[in-house]
Design a protein around this nucleic acid. Structure first.
Lengths: 203, 203
DNA sequence: AGCTGAACCGAACCTTCGGTCGGCTTCCGT
DNA sequence: ACGGAAGCCGACCGAAGGTTCGGTTCAGCT
């Protein structure tokens, strides 16, 4: 199960090997495979092709790996909330845009977002991440409420419930979506938006 | 964090305390809280209000607790696939019925299904559960394909993708649904079915 | 009263875990 | 050609992990 280690991009001084980013990428993959708690530094080192102690040259400990990964996911998601199309125009259009972009971010940063969505809150690092995630959820929830107030949603829909379901649909992508398997990300986003906004049944 | 232990129903011989079912219920709750790998037998014992070793009177080990819980969830889900309304009639109606009943099962067996949906496949027990879960997924996937062939789905819909999205929506309920918070389970099932089949946008 | 069955306890066991320490190797720029 | 920077290793440690074992407590039955 030992993976060959990647030659780092030349041009920088020092021995070739992992830099923080390439190491993090492997670590997150393993975390997603076995779960954070289920991953020991030992097996992580094996998959990296280096020893346990070498990991501590790059990070201060296991929890820092987690923190770096979670921050990356959260930053990518929050970046969407400040894009222009998410902050102006009719609310249902903002919502559609946000759903579409969320799918795209999720696809682009799949391993990191996956890890984020599985955090349980066992440690301080995890609890901080959960708090930021709730902020993001609130942003979307507000959009649904506003879209309902503008009269663009089907009548009789509960906004709070709806935003959770929509989110659930998007987030569930991590369970099966894998890059370069079938269509493009844009196709995927189209399908999600279509199902969410127009439904399954023939009109 | 020590929880008082429940008095078992009298009438049976032996010292009062936990029986397998009541113990399992607590264990699953803790597993969902902290994750299976994140739960030590020590903290589990604390929450039970008994000692570590006492747990081994009821089960052979940590993994048996997991196995019992996962079986319970899987049996409940598979039971739906043999109900009459899931095996006869137009396929889109079978599908709608299955979605509705899945929501109900998920609500009724919430902790157990939650645990099931978080399994990663680290151990043999987990891998067996994942295999059975894939069987269930295949059942639903076939329904969507058949409904498309009967012409009851919106044109241009990819059945494989759709079944995954629909399932994702249902399964995402475990992330936030809690019993006795707001409406009944039937209301919830209605909302899920409505969003899934008729969509969000005003017609 | 005495026995039996179910549930429980305490202390130990061995393994695995996350983390530390001091020293070595490989590359780049000069 | 050589010095510093970046990367790596092997041996080790204390703590926490799951599990075992011999013995104890408590309720109901006869």
């Amino acid at each position: 199960m030992t993976t060959a280690r990647p030659a780092r991009k030349t041009g920088s001084p020092g021995r070739p090997g992992y830099d923080l980013d390439s190491l993090l990428a492997v670590a997150v993959k393993v975390f997603n495979d076995k779960g954070y708690d289920g991953t020991s530094m030992e097996v992580l080192a094996q998959r990296l092709g280096i020893t346990k102690s070498s990991i501590y040259h790059h990070v201060s400990g296991k929890s820092e790996l987690l923190e770096l990964a979670l921050s990356r996911a959260l930053n990518a998601l929050f970046a969407v909330t400040t894009e222009e199309k998410a902050t102006s125009g009719r609310y249902i259009d903002r919502l559609e845009y946000l759903v579409r972009r969320s799918v795209e971010v999720l696809a682009a940063e799949l391993p990191y977002v996956t890890l984020l969505l599985r955090v349980r809150g066992n440690t301080a690092v995890e609890r901080r991440a959960l708090a930021r995630r709730r902020e993001f959820d609130a942003f979307v929830s507000d959009l649904v409420v506003a879209a309902a107030e503008e009269g663009d949603l089907r009548p009789g829909i509960d906004p709070a419930l709806t935003s959770r379901l929509v989110f659930g649909t998007v987030n569930s992508l991590i369970e099966w979506y894998r890059p370069r398997t079938g269509g493009t990300v844009a196709d995927l986003a189209d399908a999600v938006v279509e199902l969410t906004f127009d439904g399954l049944r023939r009109a």
